[in-house]
């Protein structure tokens, strides 16, 4: 290759040297195209979507909010509004209650002396190893029938947990989420709470504060960063969850979450194909707001939560 013409050589090598940056932005472009396509299509009419790809949007006669209108109307095929409420009815208790319970437990593991504390803590954290699929069948039975135990030899059945008729309710979904969130939440909060300076606790104890007061007045306010990180992670996890919502309440139209509504819409043999982009965007609206507004917390939450089962 023309080694006697250094000008061309330099130009080519200069081009080659800029390739890495070019590759980076090429990847970024590729990464954003699928989402961009969905976003554009959500504003196009049914016919436009069916006749040409989203990149032909400049040929369309204007954009429309019609799809959003339809998915928000309460018709049987779309009706995203109720499922949004259901998602909130799942995600809010499933975020608040585990945080509270985990904060109690983390405080106890870190600052209350009792026998077997370390052993119990390790046992609790080890439960992270359980994938949630393993618990689904018995949990569904529990919500269906309650929990009964036939005592061996005596042949008498004792009701341990009565049948509260929870199956197909949002309550069953957030209860399940609560149980599954706890090992990880306890681990995360314990890391933070156990690192709080012990002088603080001694001073409070000398002043006569009991555990309840110390927890309420001292530990909770000091742990806000870690509570926020976990809250964001847990909210997104429960908001975006499909498996638990589908197993526990997937067949009740009055209790299904947005993810299930959208998956059902997608399985409709294409009749509502044109509504999917708008519906998917509505579902992704809250996570995306959290993502762009609280990116720092979001990153921290996701990184810490990556080990969750």
């Amino acid at each position: 290759m023309g080694s006697n013409r250094p000008g061309v050589d330099t130009a080519i090598y200069g081009f080659l040297r800029r390739i890495p940056t070019g590759v980076l932005w090429l990847i970024v472009l590729l990464w954003s195209l699928p989402t961009l396509g969905l976003a554009v299509n959500s504003f196009r009419t049914r016919d436009n979507q069916r006749n040409a790809g989203w990149w032909n949007v400049w040929r369309d006669d204007g954009l429309t909010l019609e799809n959003y209108d339809v998915v928000f109307s309460a018709s049987a095929t779309a009706g995203l509004k109720e499922s949004l409420l259901n998602s909130f009815a799942i995600a809010i208790p499933a975020t608040v209650i585990p945080i509270a319970f985990a904060a109690f437990a983390a405080y106890a593991f870190a600052w209350i002396d009792f026998k077997g504390r370390k052993w119990l803590f390790i046992a609790t954290v080890s439960l992270l190893a359980i994938p949630l699929q393993v618990a689904l069948i018995p949990l569904l039975r529990l919500y269906n029938f309650g929990s009964h135990w036939t005592i061996p030899f005596l042949e008498k059945t004792v009701t341990l947990i009565p049948d509260f008729d929870l199956v197909n309710t949002t309550t069953a979904v957030w209860l399940t989420h609560t149980g599954f969130a706890l090992p990880f939440a306890i681990f995360l909060l314990h890391n933070y709470i156990s690192e709080l300076p012990s002088d603080l606790f001694e001073a409070a104890r000398i002043d006569g504060a009991d555990h309840f007061t110390i927890f309420w007045r001292l530990v909770l306010p000091l742990s806000i960063p870690v509570l926020a990180a976990f809250a964001i992670f847990q909210f997104l996890w429960t908001w975006n969850d499909f498996l638990i919502a589908n197993t526990m309440a997937g067949t009740n139209p009055d209790a299904i979450a947005t993810t299930i509504r959208i998956a059902n819409l997608a399985g409709d043999f294409g009749r509502n194909e044109h509504l999917l982009p708008a519906a998917a965007f509505v579902q992704a609206f809250f996570p995306l707001v959290v993502f762009f507004a609280l990116q720092r917390f979001f990153v921290r939450g996701i990184l810490a939560g990556s080990v969750k089962g």
Partner: peptide, 18 residues
């Protein structure tokens, strides 16, 4: 690059079906 982490797996599947 990180944004897809915020979207549900169901949403991502819809995006890619398209």
């Amino acid at each position: 690059i990180f944004m897809p982490m915020a979207i549900s797996l169901v949403g991502a599947s819809i995006i890619w079906r398209l």
